[in-house]
């Protein structure tokens, strides 16, 4: 009880832990990453229902059937914005964003599921809307990496595609993306 004047701000416990994990990608994700670095986006097409998963999962979770390399299916790097928000970032520890940013879902032509969390460029925030046609803005080939792709995620393109850019094409009809909001 000697020092009762210690300000509470001094009682912060710093507990900064850094752990590095290395893991081998599954064979399906290896092929997915190799294709991405090559500038192509590949997934698996379910032989039963025809749904296309990007990246492939090795199975269709809806039909519960296995998918393999022979079910590999290349999708377009063009697609449709199916949903979005514009986020005013909160400055938590580690937040890298300081200005409002776009967080959009893009349904690539040929794919049955979305790429979430994409940036959309070439259009003002207040002009952004669902149905807009966009195309991938690829990083230069020598800057493409496998970073961000892990066996635990849903597949990412952030290490090869910087953003999606408005193509200027007419909007897609709502029926194209209505069942693919997420």
């Amino acid at each position: 009880m000697s020092d009762t004047t210690t300000p509470k701000e001094n009682l912060v416990m710093n507990h900064l832990v850094s752990l590095s994990y290395s893991e081998e990608l599954t064979p399906i994700l290896e092929r997915y990453v190799d294709a991405l670095i090559d500038g192509r986006i590949v997934g698996h097409k379910c032989p039963q229902c025809g749904r296309v998963y990007v990246p492939g999962k090795g199975y269709c979770p809806i039909c519960v059937v296995e998918t393999t390399d022979k079910d590999e299916f290349e999708v377009s790097d063009r697609g449709t914005v199916t949903g979005f928000t514009i986020i005013t970032p909160v400055a938590y520890y580690g937040q890298t964003e300081t200005e409002p940013f776009v967080y959009a879902s893009v349904l690539l032509d040929g794919s049955s599921g979305n790429l979430g969390g994409q940036d959309i460029i070439g259009v003002a925030h207040d002009q952004l809307h669902s149905g807009m046609r966009v195309r991938a803005v690829w990083k230069p080939p020598n800057e493409r990496t496998a970073e961000g792709v892990s066996n635990r995620g849903w597949g990412s393109v952030a290490s090869v595609i910087d953003a999606f850019e408005w193509t200027g094409e007419p909007d897609a009809d709502r029926s194209v993306y209505e069942e693919h909001i997420f």
Binding site: P89, G94, G117
Partner: peptide, 11 residues
């Protein structure tokens, strides 16, 4: 680039 819960539900 954390979006918070609101960022997930807003779309």
């Amino acid at each position: 680039r954390g979006i918070g819960a609101g960022g997930a539900f807003a779309p």
